[in-house]
Design a protein around this nucleic acid. Sequence first.
DNA 1: ATTTTCGGTTGACATGGATCAAGCGAACGC
DNA 2: GCGTTCGCTTGATCCATGTCAACCGAAAAT
Lengths: 247, 247
Amino acid sequence: MPHTHPLNQEVTLSVIKTACSNCNLRELCLPFGLSLEELEKLDDLVSTRRRIKRGDHLYRAGEAFDAIYAIRSGFFKTDVLLEDGRDQVTGFQMAGELLGLDGISTEHHTCNAIALEDSEICAIPFSRLEGLSREIHTLQHHFHKVMSREIVRDHGVMMLLGTMRAEERLAAFLLNLSQRFTARGFSHAEFYLRMTREEIGSYLGLKLETVSRAFSRFQEEGHIAVQQKHIRILNVNGLKALMNHRA
Amino acid sequence: MPHTHPLNQEVTLSVIKTACSNCNLRELCLPFGLSLEELEKLDDLVSTRRRIKRGDHLYRAGEAFDAIYAIRSGFFKTDVLLEDGRDQVTGFQMAGELLGLDGISTEHHTCNAIALEDSEICAIPFSRLEGLSREIHTLQHHFHKVMSREIVRDHGVMMLLGTMRAEERLAAFLLNLSQRFTARGFSHAEFYLRMTREEIGSYLGLKLETVSRAFSRFQEEGHIAVQQKHIRILNVNGLKALMNHRA
DNA sequence: ATTTTCGGTTGACATGGATCAAGCGAACGC
DNA sequence: GCGTTCGCTTGATCCATGTCAACCGAAAAT
């Protein structure tokens, strides 16, 4: 039962042979630290790449879980929907990051993963990953680190939501994006936001108007230049100072 | 009340031989689903139990990580301290739950774990756990589920902090505690809070005054009876209704 | 037993961010 | 190319929660 997915259109869903061993994200992604020989075993496992168009779901809350996904290119958000209609964005994910870890617990996905731009993902059948990580110690350990890192990241968001004010949250958000873009070889000072003000607000526990106002304020004060989704960071230290503003 | 705790240890840190195989928490804890034979192997690994007195740290942020901890009895909080002095409680943990998963990522603990009452923990050397879980498929899978569950839990807290108002947060908190006490065989309707209003507030992103007022309000409306740390839930459905109050 | 400290409650007031509302430019469908 | 929609900005006002302060009882210290 390698990979049965309910979607039927071959337009949005094309399957391509891919290989971790020549993926330039391998040092950011699951293959980190593996030997060539080990990489080849991982290649067997990560055999399907899929394209997800902007706006499409990679998976939905409630669906059966059988694979985790590595983002090969593109940009995603995950969100959780409450019965009463409220929802919250729980994260934004970019190339090299893993999606779907939340599904291991109940064997069902607990959130929706939606592409914010046309993207490509590698599907990693989870039980085969467990099998391989029983064989390859390095892979096992790295996978544990990735899961743990997700927990630490979540604690950071809790911190942000629990103790920071609007401008601090947004400053932290921008600095975090900047740092992740840098790690992927992009400019640390200039990038396009893939998400709307409303999605940023949802993630940060703020309303879109508040996000917009904070952007404007940052611009007035010369910390950044904003034009719609185009962001230039003019004063990193200014933003950092904003973050640690209060005692 | 079913809950009594041993108050008079003369040593804060004593080491006792223990065994998962006759621990009554085994179905809530790491041993879940293991055969007798497998349990014995786990026993070899989980060889040290430690007492932690109320107020003492199990570990501190920054310390080297080499083990995770299962709570055998007692109650803990974890908190994160920011450079500027702000801190936030990131969780409350009770018997059968694991502490320290955040440390795997960087090999250093990223938060403080503090006992809220005299407690006993089992130390589980992490590299040996990885070793054993390469051998025992069931253990490996269960451990992955536990980590994933932690991620899901954190998403729930993010939801709470990002979208809920004060009374909704507190209602969710009480229902969550009640449910976890129930799972451990205690009353679902009556329990003692181990933490202060300030700690609850920190966890829920509220000030202690707001927590106190919400408790009073719940009492006025007949949902609960509060007297200091003693809580009785009089109307579970009332609390549930409070949680889904807004669209 | 007395004093001190700590945690909790309650009231009065302040404020950051939500809400409501209007308008505008960019992107998109036709 | 034109109209519609969507995302964004900005202003005015409101309100939930924070802040400040007083007080109280329980527990701890002396």
